[in-house]
């Protein structure tokens, strides 16, 4: 750590962390290198693939484009915090059941982006899902099954609230 490093306090997946960060480090680096929360992926490091998406203060952000020192005091959710132990979140189950992943590298980012959508709009149309996820690249699947998985997860979540 250099002389410029700053102490950052952050709550990630309901656990508090304190960690020294350099001003040039991104939130993605804080998560991956600093805390070894490697579920968030780096695909481009410049905001163009969505593999690093996490939820910051209730909103989906690209963690490669957020500086680590900016998240001091913030609450963050990452893919690692989504399931309840081994009990999968409806999005995780739907991705599995709908075969919405091949290599799985884009999956954490897509699931986090979709979670943000579903938390505001539990029943989005197919076109709405496509537009919402347009910032998340997947090179393997052609997206069809991803869209279906998100739709299905939305229905599951809605049903569980009834």
């Amino acid at each position: 750590m250099s002389e410029y490093s700053r102490r950052v306090q952050v709550t990630i997946n309901a656990r508090e962390h304190e960690i020294d960060c350099e001003p040039r480090q991104s939130l993605l680096e804080l998560l991956r290198d600093g805390l070894q929360l490697t579920g968030s992926k780096e695909g481009c490091n410049d905001g163009n693939c969505g593999a690093c998406a996490v939820i910051l203060e209730g909103k989906c952000v690209l963690s490669c484009c957020v500086l680590a020192v900016e998240v001091d005091g913030a609450i963050i959710e990452t893919i690692e915090g989504l399931s309840d132990g081994l009990e999968l979140h409806p999005l995780q189950s739907a991705f599995l059941q709908e075969t919405a992943l091949q290599c799985g590298y884009c999956t954490p980012g897509l699931i986090m982006a979709a979670k943000d959508l579903l938390s505001h709009e539990p029943n989005p149309s197919e076109s709405r899902i496509r537009h919402w996820l347009a910032n998340n690249l997947c090179r393997c699947t052609g997206y069809d099954r991803i869209i279906k998985a998100v739709k299905k997860a939305g229905e599951t979540i809605a049903a569980s609230h009834e």
Partner: peptide, 18 residues
Amino acid sequence: LREDGVEKVMGQARFADD
């Protein structure tokens, strides 16, 4: 369903950068 899928949707699968 694929066995390795669970790790992948949970962010636990180990890719090279991990």
